[in-house]
């Protein structure tokens, strides 16, 4: 029984990590059809903001994770959108190339600035004991944060004017412009939001992983697989895909080995894309957000 609950927590934790690394990408891809190859680097920047905020500036770790990382990375996203991405809307391949270039540049820049060594901070949360098992308190924080992010995003898209305009812009940008909306601004804010969510994810993960300028590569593939499998519907798609992949990955890791866990995740994604080329939400959960 203890073991079942600890395993359930690990699975939820794994889903939470997938949500945090992929939700920013899902927002940008789902709303704007922009494939942001620099997403992994935004995660990395978020991690560094939290690490430097706590170790060098002496700020509170929760302030760094929850406020500083998303804020700074969101601003970086806005600037890059203004400099590069906004010129390339509607040209998917060009955006991919440009953001890939950005990702290489950010990795290079960070390597120059902080060096190619792994850094990290420890989580201030104590471990949590369940029977004779114990697990990291940080896992609970990740689960809570991911839940909060999903609910907040759903509220944002459903109940605010910005959310309404943003959803309208995805359907027909010209019509929004005719009605007095400003699609350019919507795109810029959406891209910034995606970057901020990546920053938040990076900050939240910093206490349990080692942050290094090339860490983005570790996450970008999984984030993409999750987003593509989820389909165009941002929140429902992301939740469906992360729950499926997180559960499969952890269960197979537990039953067999971590290698089989990774393989099972990828095989599952391949089958899913073959059967549902439009992603999970191309067939199920239609009409949700």
């Amino acid at each position: 029984m203890d073991f079942a609950s600890i395993l359930a927590i690990e699975i939820l934790g794994s889903i939470a990590i997938l949500v945090l690394i992929s939700i920013g990408l899902a927002v940008v891809f789902g709303m704007m059809k922009v494939i942001n190859m620099a997403h992994g680097e935004f995660i990395m920047l978020g991690g560094y903001v939290t690490i430097f905020g706590t170790t060098h500036a002496g700020l509170n770790i929760w302030f760094c994770i929850l406020v500083l990382s998303p804020l700074i990375v969101g601003l970086v996203g806005l600037v890059l959108e203004w400099l590069v991405v906004r010129h390339l809307y509607g040209r998917m391949i060009d955006t991919m190339l440009a953001t890939w270039g950005l990702s290489l540049a950010i990795v290079g820049l960070m390597t120059m600035l902080v060096g190619n060594t792994t850094t990290g901070i420890s989580t201030p949360l104590p471990s949590v004991a369940i029977g004779k098992f114990s697990t990291s308190g940080h896992v609970f924080f990740l689960i809570a944060l991911a839940t909060f992010v999903i609910i907040a995003l759903a509220c944002l898209f459903k109940f605010t004017t910005f959310g309404l305009t943003a959803r309208a812009t995805t359907q027909d940008a010209n019509m929004v412009a005719n009605l007095g909306g400003n699609p350019r601004r919507i795109y810029a804010v959406t891209f910034g939001l995606g970057a901020a969510l990546a920053g938040l994810g990076g900050g939240a993960l910093a206490p349990i992983i080692g942050v290094i300028p090339t860490i983005g590569i570790t996450y970008i593939a999984k984030a993409f697989i999750t987003v593509i499998s989820g389909g165009a519907t941002v929140i429902a798609g992301n939740l469906a895909a992360t729950s499926l992949f997180g559960t499969i990955n952890q269960l197979f890791t537990y039953w067999y080995t971590p290698i089989i866990g990774e393989v099972a995740l990828l095989v599952c994604a391949v089958i899913l894309i073959r059967l549902l080329p439009q992603g999970i939400t191309g067939r199920f959960f239609k009409g949700t957000i």
């Binding site: 792994t118 990290g120 420890s122 989580t123 949360l125 104590p126 471990s127 949590v128 004991a129 114990s134 697990t135 990291s136 308190g137 940080h138 206490p207 349990i208 992983i209 080692g210 860490i215 570790t218």
Partner: peptide, 13 residues
Amino acid sequence: AHMSFYRQWKAAG
């Protein structure tokens, strides 16, 4: 990437 093992080992108490 494997450095995370040592961190999560500590975090799990």
